[in-house]
Nucleic acid binder design. Structure first.
Lengths: 145, 145
DNA sequence: TCAATAAAATACTTTTTTATCTTTTATTAT
DNA sequence: ATAATAAAAGATAAAAAAGTATTTTATTGA
């Protein structure tokens, strides 16, 4: 098992890619994004449509249309993307799958998981969609392969 | 998305349950385990057969048969259970799903995920199947609901 | 207005995960 | 030996996730 669903992995890679490709007000098409992050195009289209509907990214139809990010979207934490796609069970669900697990009715690993969930949440909250724009321009980070 | 698959959640809950129910040399049947951890019985049977085949737990057929744990199984780290069921991608896979992600070809979140994976691994390595036997006897921990 | 462009929406297929059901094998006690 | 017990094995089924294809809507520029 991976931490995120495939949908979420593609979604995060896509928002990073869109961020660094549309830094100066332009837009980018689904084909180029899918190619840039090595994902199946029609599947990614659905993911981005969903993120667009939820206001996480922006889009525009027609010629010279495409996906882009406005200023406030660039500053969104990655946790918003994850929550939009995978929900918030990663941040507050029980590690052993118990619905009623809580401080007063804990599973054996309750406290251990609380720490881990918090560190995942903190990491995603402290990283914005635009965080890596500079580094992506220099090519030191990979979003495909 | 949860951290573990359903299969793995049931597996971990089951080994904890078997550990505390068979502390004094006896065995426990699949029905009682499924009931004790609130899991679908035939599905759990599959999981336990697999764990038994892999030597993570022990079993015995026939009257008074059932599942149990020998001394060395009780001292196994939980990471062995997780690895047997979900594989080791949780411990060494890329958070963004990139096959070739590594120190020399990192994804943007490579270092952040390394820390998180390490803390998950450490937690599972430091916890053995028998770790909670005493606490489970007192009923302070829940394995169902 | 019309053709071209590109995302949105919808419907569908495949694969994987989760779950169930049936038959077989091993063991015990009578 | 035989009947009862309980896990092992195998075959199927249902649900969810991943992926594809087709049609519709919005926008632009000629």
């Amino acid at each position: 098992m991976a931490i995120f669903s495939k949908t979420c992995e593609y979604g995060i890679r896509a928002v990073f890619f869109i961020a660094h490709k549309t830094a100066k007000g332009n837009r980018i098409g689904i084909k180029e994004i899918a190619d840039g992050i090595d994902s199946p195009e029609p599947f990614l289209a659905k993911i981005l449509q969903d993120l667009s509907r939820k206001g996480i990214i922006q889009s525009f139809k027609g010629p010279h249309g495409g996906f882009y990010l406005d200023e406030s979207s660039l500053n969104r934490p990655l946790s918003d993307v994850v929550e939009a796609v995978d929900g918030n069970s990663l941040f507050n669900g029980c590690g052993l799958g118990l619905k009623a697990c809580s401080e007063i009715n804990p599973c054996p690993l309750h406290n251990q998981f609380k720490e881990i969930r918090n560190s995942i949440y903190k990491m995603l909250k402290d990283t914005t969609i635009g965080t890596f724009n500079d580094e992506l321009l220099t090519g030191i980070f990979s979003l495909k392969k």
